[in-house]
Design a protein around this nucleic acid. Sequence first.
DNA 1: TAAATTTGCTTGCATTTTGCAAGTACAAAT
DNA 2: ATTTGTACTTGCAAAATGCAAGCAAATTTA
Lengths: 135, 135
Amino acid sequence: MKGIKKRSDCPISGTLDVFGDKWSFLIIRDLLFRKECTYGDFLKSAEGIATNILASRLVTLEENKIIEKLEHPTSKAKVLYKLTKKGIDLLPILIEIHLWFDKYGTTPEEIREMLELVRKDKAGFIENFTKNLES
Amino acid sequence: MKGIKKRSDCPISGTLDVFGDKWSFLIIRDLLFRKECTYGDFLKSAEGIATNILASRLVTLEENKIIEKLEHPTSKAKVLYKLTKKGIDLLPILIEIHLWFDKYGTTPEEIREMLELVRKDKAGFIENFTKNLES
DNA sequence: TAAATTTGCTTGCATTTTGCAAGTACAAAT
DNA sequence: ATTTGTACTTGCAAAATGCAAGCAAATTTA
């Protein structure tokens, strides 16, 4: 599965060329909330991604420098995935999706607590969250 | 194409259940930038959506109250599509996608001009843009 | 006013992507 | 030494996508 074909110069189109499917952004969500995930961690997520799809999405995200692979500190059998800076910088998009959803849908309580912080000081929230992920 | 199956309670997942494909958000982009579009207008967009896909996406977006149909003021042969408030409120997501893309990709000049306004006063930009679309 | 064109779709079919179930190779635990 | 865990790959069926053609109603043109 090689280079993605660009449909136009439009930034929205270009972004969808990479993330425009039902799974990629869930992988990013997992990594934003959990910082580092193994292959098995992704498989355990509530939505139930198929293993072949997961593998192909991880490749695409890595090709596009959104995520990177790391050695697991204690086990050679495991692989750690984490976001690059480019990936971490998707946080504001994720936040706006959450805010929009909260306005028109039903947000789980735990997340709604996070959104209160966001509403109090969005820039500060993003800065802190980002710092934590970068470290 | 009937009701969409919800994969989990996660807001990201729920949003992707509706928009998680390569085309839906381009339709919304068109409507944000052009305010009202006919079926033919969407077909003319640079990315070249297939007519059957367009028709099915318009149905889904309408079912989900993101867009609505309007009578064309001068022609019964034409149909006007426009965003609902719920659809207009996707603007902040679109903006963050643009800002992210601009950081890591190449944004067309015309759009970059818009982004300067956004960076000067994001809240004001959104307010004005929204007001214009609502009227 | 009859014929041609425009408009918003639908239909049929080939290609591509997805999803499910198994299988594999290597690491690690028992 | 054997079983289990982990990260995948493979094969195949089902679903989604893409392309081309078709169609009915509205509109324009002759």
